[in-house]
């Protein structure tokens, strides 16, 4: 459409000409392309966090929130300081971290292995994929008594529970990732006579790595939940046991302190995965 046809249009309503700039006058093209690109803005998370704590502290100090409903943040911090000073923090955090590390490592290794098999071999896919789909929705916590019978009341049953919880989402993420590896790259590897091992290690695994890493975000969060559950059901030390004791005494300050430690643990795990992603996936730019 040209200016000439616009001006010549007899039907152009007079009102459109009076309020707005004269018809045909240059005006900027309206911008419509924003959004749908989450990025940056790293300050927003901490800011919201500080803001919430600030409101909460202010509410407690002014008596608007009673200590019986919610403990005061500064009181929770004081409990934490005490734990830190007395060394009891590590008494609880140490065993928890150990269980998390061992259980997750076992679950990740087994999950990536089985996921690769399902992704690569038709027989494994036909046999194992339905099995994993059947195991996925089972609440793993419900199996803790079973694991206690199999592996004893000690550490082994906790490792097994965490490993099992990490295992199923890792399998699903891994074989989904393998399925999405560009087949033309595998063809390329075959056409250059690469060995099967090379194709798996240098083409399939790196191609599936983004999916495996984003699966890890989910599975390690599950691992923390299971860690606490296992420690609540039978442990002397550990963050879960600490939270359980505090809860049964209605010691809300300690309870919140334990919960905050768990949140921090989640944040730390997420941060570490982010670092790992940046190291392993730097080729994505």
């Amino acid at each position: 459409m040209t200016d000439a046809t616009l001006d010549a249009a007899p039907a152009a309503p007079a009102s459109a000409r009076t309020g707005a700039p004269a018809a045909g006058a240059p005006r900027p093209v309206p911008f419509r392309g924003g959004g749908f690109q989450p990025s940056g803005r790293a300050w927003a998370g901490p800011l919201l966090f500080v803001l919430l704590i600030g409101i909460w502290e202010w509410g407690s100090a002014s008596g608007w929130i009673t200590p019986l409903t919610l403990p005061r943040p500064s009181a929770v911090a004081a409990v934490f300081g005490e734990l830190w000073a007395s060394g009891r923090l590590w008494e609880h955090l140490g065993p928890s971290l150990g269980r998390l590390a061992v259980g997750s490592a076992l679950g990740l290794a087994a999950g990536i292995g089985v996921g690769l098999m399902i992704g690569l071999f038709s027989l494994a896919r036909a046999g194992l994929a339905p099995l994993v789909a059947a195991l996925f929705p089972v609440p793993k916590i419900a199996l803790l008594p079973l694991f206690v019978i199999w592996f004893g009341i000690d550490e082994a049953s906790k490792y097994a529970l965490i490993a099992f919880g990490v295992f199923t989402p890792t399998v699903v993420a891994t074989y989904g990732g393998v399925d999405n590896v560009d087949r033309s790259l595998i063809r390329m590897g075959q056409s250059f006579g690469l060995s099967w091992r090379s194709i798996v290690l240098k083409i399939v695994l790196p191609g599936a790595a983004p999916a495996i890493l984003s699966g890890m975000r989910v599975s390690l969060a599950i691992a923390i939940i299971l860690l606490v559950a296992a420690e609540m059901l039978g442990a002397e030390h550990g963050v879960g046991a600490f939270v359980l004791t505090a809860g049964s005494l209605y010691d809300l300050e300690s309870l919140f302190c334990g919960v905050a430690i768990l949140s921090a643990l989640g944040l730390a795990v997420s941060f570490l995965i982010g670092r790992l992603e940046r190291r392993l996936l730097d080729w994505r730019g």
Binding site: S184, L185, R187, M188, F192, G193, L194, S198, P206, W283
Partner: peptide, 29 residues
Amino acid sequence: LNPLTYVFQHFALLPWRTVAGNIRLVLED
């Protein structure tokens, strides 16, 4: 090293390897 060697329409380069790394890939075995 590889008597029958392809050049593909869509290049088939590994995005996680540098230019030199992509070339080295076919020598490593």
